[in-house]
Amino acid sequence: MFVSQSMTRKVITVAKDTPILEARALMRQHHIRHLPVVAADDHLVGIITDRDIRSVLPYKLAGGESDGQTEPDIARMTVSEVMTTTPVTISPTHTLPDALLLIQRSRVGAFPVVDEHGKLKGIISVRDLLRAFINVLGIGEPGTLLCILVENKVGQLKRIVDLITEEGISLGSVLVARYWEKDKRAVFPYLLTNNVINVKKRLREMGYTLLDPMEWYLDQLPK
């Protein structure tokens, strides 16, 4: 649940005086796009991204092939000339929902994780958050997703979970989403089973509507 548990701890970093071509080579070598810039004692002083570097490279260099004809100016350029000096950072004690909301708001691909003394502790990227989210959804495990339409009143989820328990089925996860009809909720239980015939039948007998999969919405509401 905490950033410290999902972040990458072994961070590849550069210093302010690292040549940008060296920084670019590091990114390629490690298949990453963000390099925190640190001073002595891992103190964070900025971040440099592949986009920052591309924006200062002439067109032919940005393309990739290093032909040995690097222009001397660019060869001399250092990280400090193109880095962002005030990166958006996050603390290791912040939560994953904090990170998700922050990433949505700030539109960056990764945050340096910095402690209260400004020291770099790790980096957390969209990729790390996706991994955590996939884990939360349980979709790495074999199972079947259902979508049940319920009245928005107390006790609905209990009835559904009781039924699933009676059927001896394990739950991978349960999502509850808003539904476009007023006073309705869409419940998405992810059942760790292939065998959904009985549970579907019994849900219908209890008066629930099982939504046609083609009518499922996770993030958009009609009209």
């Binding site: 074999p142 199972g143 997703l145």
Partner: peptide
């Protein structure tokens, strides 16, 4: 697989 077992 988003609508059916086993998800692969």
């Amino acid at each position: 697989p988003s609508f059916c077992f086993p998800g692969t």
